[in-house]
Nucleic acid binder design. Structure first.
Length: 601
RNA sequence: GGCCCGGUAGCUCAGCUGGAUAGAGCAACAGCCUUCUAAGCUGUGGGUCGGGGGUUCGAAUCCCCCCCGGGUCACCA
């Protein structure tokens, strides 16, 4: 972008001034600090090595040459080795007039190439979604939006973990204590009903273990031999043997889970293009492993189990297939990766999974590579930290979780309460008001989570509910509502229209620009590079923090600079176009986070 | 113990491909609504950037050692 352009020009000038054989320098080109006069700064300290002159002299010499070459450059100043460049007001205004009407601004054109796969959510069906899942879903959904904005074709995948010992635990508890109750008979949300039995299982199981330990059994042995866990394992065996009764209950309870998840996903506003079930994919991968054995990459032990040796890579030996030929976690992940690759030839396979699985994905990548799949480096594990509660981590077994549905309910009602206290819902029809509360509540929740760098653990304190002031989603939503309200007023009061104003302003020159306005235009100017960087680093947080900066800048302007009361028509229209542009970028940027913005609030 | 990730204001977080006096928000305090939405704006206070070495004209940022927190090292997923 412009930084690169300035760097290229600087390099040209340096070799012209100080010698043709100077290597291409990678000088820092950055936005000028706020307190200092200028738009961009080139740091030329390292040029002194070639110029053999003081930093000030060198910078001034380069600056003089730049003035001749760069049309929009109005002036420059030098502080030590910092060459500060000031572009003309006209430079910034013409940029704004060019892009304000461009609905694709900031987004890259669609690439004609193979897709990027983004897998996220991937819930277990034995319990409802909690706050940790929310972080996962929001990250995955937002990442997919950001990649699309960068022009990539994206396929969003959800691999539901619908089989295994965990669901058998819920099934067993239901058989023992369920008395045939159903979501319909109890009025409980279906996935929550399943969760109730999971917790019930864990409760009785813990009691059994405790009793066994008191009777002198070792803890390890007790955990393994308690009657309930044995029974659950028995159910798993029956499931594997396709016992009709077991399968029927399994199907029934899983359907409950899907129904419940569907509701939660819809409320949260996330979606998928492909939903896979582990019961369909868990047998994949055996062939990949046995083929690897034939190739001599893997080794087999006496009991028939197959392993990969990663000690050369600084890791351990890892089991890939059990002696009895059954799959482990790694087997099926190898399988699904290979199947996905063969089917889609993705340019990237992104897995949104918590950081407790860093090791697993490290092994997965290295194993695939050793098996000759050179596309293994296309796998990227978007590893995110856990959401911690003030008194430690969330544990579904112990009931110390923040349930996803409960949290959303709470956010909605807090949004409603706050809005009513401010007296802002009074003129709205009831249904619109409900939509608004949802929009604000979700906006607060999503922004709260997405503004934090994914790889960091984050703290959530349920006692202090999520804020609506300051660096928050509602603050940005509010800014958008302000813009929209201002523009509506402009239309009715002055007959303002975006397209005619743009036309008329283009024919003028010398419209004055306040520093405050220039700051906003400069912020708008970097939106495309923020979108690009967010796509390259898989980081919604970059978008979130950018939108906050932009909104803050705009609010400052809004508070201090009159728009509709401005008598100079060109000046007024310029400010309105600035508002139009800001509103559009906020809306588009928030969409990348999966957050909607209201017309009023 | 090995490996991975964190440690920046009382709290939650930016900044980390080296650059100018380290930034926001919350909380605290003091102001601003007869004027485009006060979920806003302005100002004040608050920091040995975990500690110690090193590289450099210049280090929160890069390298080494140490301390603290989390994760992981299952024939669970």
């Amino acid at each position: 972008m412009i930084e690169q352009l300035l760097l290229d020009i600087t390099n040209r000038i340096v070799s012209r001034l100080y010698g043709e054989n100077i290597p291409v320098l990678n000088l820092p080109v950055e936005k000028t600090k706020k307190e200092i006069n200028g738009d961009y700064t080139v740091v030329i300290f390292s040029v002194t090595r070639y110029s053999h002159k003081a930093p000030e002299t060198t910078a001034a010499e380069i600056g003089n040459e730049m003035m001749k070459e760069i049309p929009g450059l109005a002036s420059f100043n030098v502080i030590k080795g910092f060459l500060n460049l000031c572009f003309s007001d006209n430079y910034w205004i013409s940029f704004m007039l060019k892009e304000a009407g461009n609905d694709q601004y900031g987004f890259a054109p669609q690439r004609q190439e193979d897709p990027v796969l983004v897998e996220y959510s991937s819930p277990n069906t034995n319990k409802p979604l909690h706050l940790g899942h929310i972080r996962n879903n929001l990250l995955g959904f937002s990442l997919a939006e950001i990649l699309k904005a960068n022009g990539y074709p994206v396929i969003r995948m959800n691999l539901v973990n619908d089989r295994g010992i965990h669901i058998c635990k819920s099934m067993l508890a239901y058989m023992k204590w369920g008395k045939g109750e159903t979501p319909e008979s109890t009025g409980i949300k279906p996935d929550h009903l399943i969760g109730k039995y999971y917790v019930l299982f864990e409760k009785h199981y813990r009691e059994e273990v405790k009793k066994l330990v008191e009777e002198g059994t070792s803890e390890e042995e007790a955990l393994r031999s308690a009657p309930l866990i044995r029974e659950a394992q028995d159910i798993l065996r029956k499931w594997e043997a396709r016992d009709p009764e077991t399968r029927a209950l399994w199907a029934l309870m899983n359907d409950w889970a899907y129904k419940g998840f569907e509701t939660t996903y819809t409320r949260l506003g996330v979606a998928f293009d492909i939903v896979q079930h582990e019961s369909d994919t868990y047998l994949l991968g055996k062939k990949v492993v046995t083929d690897g054995l034939e190739q001599g990459v893997l080794s087999q032990k006496d009991d028939g189990s197959i392993w990969i040796d990663l000690t050369q890579d600084g890791l351990d030996e890892k089991l890939l297939l059990r002696g009895d030929g059954t799959s482990v976690y790694m087997t099926q992940d190898l399988g699904t990766a290979v199947v996905r690759y063969d089917k889609f030839h993705p340019t990237k396979m992104i897995y949104v999974v918590g950081n407790e699985q860093n090791y697993h994905f490290d092994v997965l990548r290295r194993t695939l590579k050793k098996l000759g799949r050179d596309w293994s480096e296309r796998i990227y594990h978007l590893s995110y930290g856990m959401v911690e509660l003030p008194n430690g981590k969330m544990k579904s077994r112990e009931g110390t979780v923040v349930d996803a549905d409960d949290l959303m309910d709470e956010m909605f009602s807090t949004a409603e309460q706050t809005t009513r206290e401010l007296g802002k819902a009074n003129e709205l029809p009831a249904t619109d008001a409900q939509d608004l509360f949802r929009m604000i509540g979700l906006g607060a929740l999503k922004y709260f989570i997405l503004k934090v760098d994914p790889k960091k653990n984050m703290l959530f304190d349920p006692a202090e509910s999520i804020d609506f002031n300051g660096n928050t989603g509602p603050f940005i939503q509010y800014t958008h509502a302000r813009v929209r309200s201002l523009l509506k007023r402009a239309e009715t009061q002055t007959g303002f229209s975006e397209s005619t104003a743009l036309q008329e302003l283009k024919d003028q020159s010398g419209i004055p620009v306040l520093p405050l306005e220039k700051e906003i235009i400069k912020k708008l100017f970097i939106f495309p590079s923020i979108v690009k960087e967010a796509g390259e680093t898989f980081s919604p947080a970059l978008i979130a923090n950018y939108l906050f900066d932009l909104s803050k800048e705009y609010n400052q302007f809004y508070q201090e600079v009159p728009v509709l009361k401005e008598e100079n028509v060109s000046c007024r229209d310029m400010r309105l176009i600035l508002s139009v542009f800001t509103g559009k970028v906020i809306k588009k940027g928030m969409r990348l986070l999966g957050i909607d913005v209201p017309e009023r609030m």
